[in-house]
Design a protein around this nucleic acid. Sequence first.
DNA 1: GTGAAAGCGCTAACAA
DNA 2: TTGTTAGCGCTTTCAC
Lengths: 334, 334
Amino acid sequence: MALSPDSKNRRVTIKDVARKGGVSTQTVTRAINDMPGINIRTKDRIRKLAEELGYTPSRFAKGLVQGAGSCVGMVVPELTNPYFHAVVSSVVHHATQRGWQITLNEYPSDADNMMLAIEQIAAQVDAVIGWSGSGLAACQRVLGRRPLVLLDPEYPGAAGEVSFDYVHAAQLTLNHLISQGRTRISYLDSSPPQGLSVRAQAFARQAGELGLPLTFLSAEGSAKGARTAVSSLTETNLLPDALIAFNDVTAIGAIKALAAAGRSVPRECSVIGMDGIAIGELLTPELTTVSIDFNEIGATTVQLVEDLLDGKVPPGAMEAKRTLKYHMVLRQSS
Amino acid sequence: MALSPDSKNRRVTIKDVARKGGVSTQTVTRAINDMPGINIRTKDRIRKLAEELGYTPSRFAKGLVQGAGSCVGMVVPELTNPYFHAVVSSVVHHATQRGWQITLNEYPSDADNMMLAIEQIAAQVDAVIGWSGSGLAACQRVLGRRPLVLLDPEYPGAAGEVSFDYVHAAQLTLNHLISQGRTRISYLDSSPPQGLSVRAQAFARQAGELGLPLTFLSAEGSAKGARTAVSSLTETNLLPDALIAFNDVTAIGAIKALAAAGRSVPRECSVIGMDGIAIGELLTPELTTVSIDFNEIGATTVQLVEDLLDGKVPPGAMEAKRTLKYHMVLRQSS
DNA sequence: GTGAAAGCGCTAACAA
DNA sequence: TTGTTAGCGCTTTCAC
């Protein structure tokens, strides 16, 4: 019943158990960890005693002596977003196979304060995986030697980077839309602080090369935001005949808005998402999307962290920059 | 450049830095941790040296001396399922506010081996949150004193339990369907190993009390599984006029199947999901569902873990069993 | 401003 | 079978 022998709620240590049991700490270790070389009766007695006293081995002491698998912090802007979720799942999957731990942290994406989240976990992790806008240098400073691997980085400079080939994605989508005979194409982006985002620029460039006019819309980066933005568009005569959304969630919002306005998708307006999250398939109409292989994201990211941790790849080196390609998934919405 | 001073890849410790810097380990600590009482020039010099040597403080040694927030393992059967994802998000959210760490682990749900996942992390966590069918006793044994909190437990016996009030959910859904004049209602469950699942039993009982015939269907617990099951149903004349799915993902699969068979939802067949995951709103038709408050799940679970860890609530006690209620979210599918 | 000593809680190696 | 010693890497006194 009692949680600790003294009234102070000091942690119960192996010594407490040893003392109360009239044995050495060594014997307690042997009992607790099922090690050989201990009388079964002593073992039972000590285990029972430990249980009574409420003894739990300190993970720190244990780790200090025996070591442990790597522990990687994952710092995510919006955990409720299915895209981030898909990446987390994949990373966890691959990390688990290596016996690593992934510790998850969330920060409000509006406040761009990945830093605060990193500060919170820095002391207890060996590396950090995150997404980031600004404040990169400060984050690396907090982490010291521990590598920071950024996914879809906006600015260069992290120890490791996993990027997406937006130029290739633009080729895939634009060529597809051209083949469909679409002429008034818009790219629907989340509102960047200023100018065009990296991905929007890739689309702009690619459209330029194809001699295709491409307009840009911006919406708050959620289904609701896209819905609002596209709704107001449907009231005008300026509705494009194809919409490329910067992610699937936004594409879904756009489709909802078009449906609500009685516009047929894809007949009147083709909609293409980006990401390839699982729910795209469950929608009506099913979502056409340029998809990234989430399993590959996890595999690549975890491998990169491992290489960095092992010193096989120096932080910031060319080999620490890895790029993933999209592929087209044709379904109903385009 | 060099990762470690010796050719052995032994970890670089504070002593190495101290020795190479011709100072004591204290001075290194002060430099690294920005502590007062150190000459600024010494600090710079040591920091630079530490950087060169590739020194990173051991999280174990640091934790041992200074302590750290709790670390809770979360062990999930299918991370790709949006339901589990929503719960994880909420738990992480509430845990982060307390300065805790959540470390995520996945295990293949078919192999019901939560145990293996727990064994992998047991030594490095203070508590575990999970879902479980069987093997509960073995899991608790591995964890020793560390509390195991089960969500939606099938069998009692964990240190803490967060359950869902299926009877109440059954009342809500059945009454709603009765008010709609539905008479041929089916409950679509995932296939349990034998007999009816706990939740199905609650629905059976409630239907009995209302004098309502309720039939049971079972499908593999995924959208695809539900789709297959309902598809084969639409070919018969036995199609019910209302379908209650044990979760939203399954409901979505059912809706897809009905749409594909040209059956109108909700006119010909009403569909109600359970969970209230976010995408329900984005579907066409939008999903009617008995919803659980995910924020509440996280808040309740984390609070329970805290109470258990603090010893405020003894493991297995009545106060360690908490039950959450559903609420009806009426949208288009019913 | 700096260093020496002690100790956090545990386990590996060696004695008894 | 059991106990003793030493040490993991760090920080906290406290002395200089």
